[in-house]
Structure formats: C-alpha cells, structure tokens
C-alpha cells in the first residue's frame, strides 16, 4: 500500500515539476548585473560604461576567449553537454538567428567535461544561453530552447543601440593574451 501511495505522490510531483520546467523553457531572464539593469532602453550607455574591463575579467576563461575571438555587439554563449538533446535544437535555432541579425554572434560551448564553467556561471541546466554585450556584461539568459521572436525582441535594443553611435571601446582592437 505504501508503495502505491509513493507512486501516486511521485507522479503528482513529476507533473508539477514538468509543468514548471515547461513554463520556464525558453523564458528570458534579464540579468540584474548592475551595468545592464533595465537593458538601457535609451541606448545612452550602449556598453554599460563603468565596469567594462571588470565584466570580462570576471568570466571563465573559455567564455572570455569566445567573446574575444570575434567581438560582436551581442554574443550568445550557449552551454551544452553531449547528453542534452534540446541543446541540438537550441544550437540550430541560435545559429540561424545569429546569421540573420547584424552584430549578433552565437557560440556553442560544450561543457560536458568542464563543470567548472557551469559552476562559475551558476548554470544548472543545459541548454542555457547567456547573452553578453561587447564589454562582457551579461544581458540576459535563457534556459531551455529559446523562443525566436522573444529573444530577438529582447536583444533588439542592444543590437540597434550599439550600431548607431559606433562607440567602440578605445581598446576595441583585440586583447591579445
């Protein structure tokens, strides 16, 4: 009898978890990181000014390298593992989005053997996609397969805003390390 009750409770719990996960899939969470709060709708500070160097320096090396290797207005860094089926869907979608949008780049980081990166970034689930500004400031993150329209809408001000005034950081050359 106990077993039957446990089975019932387990299934109810799984339904709840399943619904929560489903509702969170693809939902965009804005990152509270000081410099980008409010996602600068006025475009006054395209790259969040104050903490430029600091933001980049605080990132795990692999992410920093990915951002530096080909700087873009917004870089979507996707964290994936070999064992994650939705990661493939996310990769296909993001690659497609990045091809169609100016100043947008997509990098897929396989962290199967690099749990440190996920730990440093506070990522528990794959795929998780984090959008970084050129400065290395985190703009937003999405767990699960992103939703195309919502993501583009959220990123639009960053892409347009950064395009307009061409305020490249003076050291925008390329940090050769």
């Amino acid at each position: 009898m106990t077993g039957l009750i446990v089975a019932g409770v387990t299934i109810v719990a799984a339904v709840v978890v399943g619904l929560v996960v489903r509702s969170r899939n693809g939902r965009i969470r804005r990152s509270g990181g000081g410099t980008v709060a409010g996602s600068a709708p006025d475009g006054a500070r395209p790259d969040g000014g104050s903490a430029d160097g600091g933001a980049l320096a605080g990132l795990p090396a692999d992410v920093r390298d990915a951002l530096a290797e080909e700087p873009a207005d917004v870089t979507l860094v996707q964290l994936s593992t070999t064992f994650c089926a939705p990661c493939r869907h996310a990769r296909a979608l993001l690659t497609h989005i990045a091809e169609g949008a100016d100043g947008l780049r997509h990098v897929d980081l396989d962290v199967t053997d690099k749990p440190g990166i996920a730990r440093d970034l506070g990522v528990l689930r794959t795929p998780t996609t984090i959008a970084y500004a050129r400065s290395g400031a985190e703009l937003l993150r999405v767990s699960g397969v992103p939703k195309r329209e919502e993501l583009l809408t959220a990123l639009e001000p960053r892409l347009a805003g950064a395009e307009r005034p061409a305020t490249e950081p003076p050291d925008g050359g390329r940090p050769t390390e």
């Binding site: 387990t10 299934i11 799984a14 339904v15 978890v17 399943g18 996960v21 489903r22 964290l79 593992t81 064992f83 994650c84 089926a85 939705p86 962290v111 199967t112 749990p115 996920a118 990522v123 528990l124 689930r125 794959t126």
Partner: peptide, 17 residues
C-alpha cells in the same frame, strides 16, 4: 514519467548538476 509525459530528459539536462 517526466520523459513519458513531457519529453523532458531529467538526467540529460541535469547532467551538469
């Protein structure tokens, strides 16, 4: 059950965890 009902593979996505 999560896999059957939602197509959600718990172990796969939580691999990092």
């Amino acid at each position: 059950f999560l896999n059957a009902a939602f197509g959600f593979c718990l172990g796969c996505e939580m691999y990092l965890l």
